[in-house]
Design a protein around this nucleic acid. Structure first.
Lengths: 393, 393
DNA sequence: TTTTTTTATGCAATCGTTGTCGGTAACGTT
DNA sequence: AACGTTACCGACAACGATTGCATAAAAAAA
């Protein structure tokens, strides 16, 4: 390892304005390549002031020899302020780039113009698409969103909910964690006046706006499609039993079997009580299906992670899709068409669901006193048929 | 459409505690199936109180006939409070489930015990994994994270940065948007004392902690692998030219070609200035490569979206991977091994990068006065070779 | 000129919390 | 008896912004 002092030349898109003391950990052939080795030794004094000094209404008042109340009113355009004074204040505020302190406002008004999102996981295409939908609506209605994920843990859901409530979000959009069957924390907040809208994984026994996909129909169609392809031994790999999505999809699955006169085989139905967060659990479930005395010839699986995991496992066990086992997923995987084989999937209108939930919530926030007609919206799913569910000839 | 009044029976996991007036939009065969049709007509009065009444220190003071200062000190365990009083206060606070108001604290202390994350997109495996890493560290050092995405837009990055600063986050973790080459907004905040740590897409001309993957080496290895497989006409599909990741990967790519005596063909290098957010742009770039007079026999592509898009397009154009065009991606796609063909990829240690960046940031936040030795850490990437880059025999 | 009205501004309280300062007992020391 | 210590506790200001109320000055009406 060598240590040397280099002045880097201006070159390419970079402009180095500093002298570096660089410690190289690999030999380099050109100065430019230096950017690819570990630069360790830049010593530099950090700016010491910790106070992010921003202009307050008080500063404006002092500078213009006015009182804070006058400034405040001038900025809000109150009619009782002299137009001239108003202009003065406005101009000064503009020039100094004044922005009202949202924290002070939150404290005073007990609201924050922000809404909290509580979801299981952002590393999931369905949820990240939904978030984008929420942001789009919130953004142009003047709200910010605060995202928190609970990683399918009830504990974390609780903590996050409390935190957001303390932070005075004006409302919550929730998709329940895989562990949540107790909803007291939400009920309490709601009874204290905090609007809550559920989406995707919605509780049954709870009166508020709810947005979800039509899981029953989606599952029915997926199962019916498999049946129509000629599969008869259809398994169902799904999320924790107490979630609405699980129940509704299960019902759709069963109904499709019934309608086609296929008996329901309970040992074909596998719940993963952590929604795929624990690989071992999924592996156990899938292996049980694969090594079932009457091995299923198709799997209808719920959720991104369950679907990708089971595809991996089926392949790992040396079975072919769809020849040995066909598969249809209930998933919004963006790369579904690129999988091997291309994955047939029931997709949910995630973006629209997020938008709708947010509209519901902001309506609740901004029109709080009137009697509200709570709605439960179900949006249509779409079955996209690809290779993974086609019966070989 | 029929309208009827139903009392739903207790059954399964559901307990209906209310009488519903249900408007059915599809015919149903059993009461249970009702959950799968659109329930439209639930009329219900929302609780009217908008004030989320919470217990404050003042309430405790009043209830116990003490002053607020005494209560405050008792709660913080100050030595100058009578143990008996302390116990009284503590117990009462516990019983009433008192939680200090974080907003008031933020206002008073000009800090929030939260850190802001500014990234291009959460619907991206690399970033969502990184966020998980950040959360894990922040969480057990007593911080919350606030996530904001800019969708590769400079405008949004600016707005989000301002917002987070106003919200008094104690520091920022940033990965630049595809449009950002002006960094004044960060510089200004930093000069005012707000610690900032960059990760992944780091600016060159900026003195602070930085965390990134070793893009140069990662790109070098990927390219060298393709060369070693026997490919010679290797194209590079990448992100906007001014981003650090682009530059570093490009240098690695070029270096590998050079070292193997392969001339660099500029028309094989395609930049997508919106990082894959605009499908048309990617399509144009990929088609130009495919219809190049000297069609490349391999593509080294950066980013999740660029990689999946180019795979789609290559397939759509009727070409085979890797027979006609091989491909290696710089991506953290979790389903890479399931793609068709299984995708060879350079993966970054996203989780660890997030952790490290957060540790850096919290160190800056909590040890602000001393002279700090800023570091630029590069973490090793990993090349996983799968089918998509194997030269057919 | 005097009274009333209008216009424009300031004061002070408020939100929840904490730091500074000061005060009051009870007790011990000369 | 006078003073100092110690232990405990409360009043007040401050953080940034808003708002009801008071009020001064100016304008209008008498």
């Amino acid at each position: 390892m060598q240590s040397l002092s280099v002045t880097l030349p201006k070159r390419g898109v970079f402009t180095f304005r500093y002298f570096f003391l660089v410690t190289l950990q690999k030999s380099v052939s050109s100065p430019l390549q230096i950017i690819s080795v570990i630069i360790e030794g830049i010593n530099c004094t950090k700016p010491t002031s910790r106070t992010v000094e921003v202009i307050t209404i008080k500063d404006i008042a002092k500078a213009l020899n006015l009182s804070t109340s006058t400034v405040s009113r001038a900025l809000r355009g109150s009619y009782e302020i002299n137009p001239e004074t108003k202009r003065l204040v406005m101009e000064y505020a503009e020039r100094m780039n004044y922005r009202p302190n949202p924290i002070a406002l939150s404290l005073k008004e007990n609201r924050s113009r922000s809404i909290g999102i509580i979801i299981p996981e952002i590393a999931n295409n369905f949820f990240s698409q939904a978030i984008n939908g929420m942001e789009s609506i919130a953004y142009n209605r003047g709200y910010h969103v605060v995202i928190s994920q609970n990683h399918e843990s009830y504990e974390r859901e609780l903590v996050n909910t409390q935190y957001l409530a303390q932070r005075r979000v004006d409302g919550l959009i929730v998709s329940l964690s895989g562990e949540s069957n107790d909803l007291e924390h939400f009920k309490e907040l709601q009874s204290k006046g905090l609007p809550i809208v559920f989406f995707d994984r919605v509780p049954q026994d709870y009166i508020t706006h709810k947005v979800s996909a039509d899981n029953f129909v989606g599952a029915y169609e997926a199962t019916a499609h498999l049946i129509q392809q000629g599969f008869r031994k259809i398994a169902h790999l799904t999320s924790p039993s107490w979630l609405s999505i699980t129940y509704e999809r299960l019902e759709g699955y069963k109904k499709a079997l019934q309608n086609h006169g296929i008996p329901i085989e309970e040992s074909y139905i596998k719940y993963c009580s952590h929604g795929g967060m624990i690989p071992e659990e999924v592996e156990k479930a899938v292996l049980e299906l694969i090594h079932h005395p009457e091995r299923p010839d198709a799997i209808f699986s719920a959720g991104d992670r369950l679907t990708t995991s089971s595809m991996s496992l089926i392949k790992r066990e040396g079975l072919r899709i769809p020849e040995d086992i066909a598969i249809v997923g209930f998933t919004n995987l963006i790369s579904a068409h690129l999988l091997s084989p291309a994955l047939s999937a029931v997709t949910q209108p995630a973006y629209e669901m997020g938008q709708l939930a947010t509209e519901f919530l902001i309506d609740l926030i901004e029109r709080p006193k009137s009697t509200i007609r709570f709605e439960t919206k179900r949006l249509e799913t779409k079955l996209v048929i690809r290779e993974s569910s086609l019966k070989p000839a």
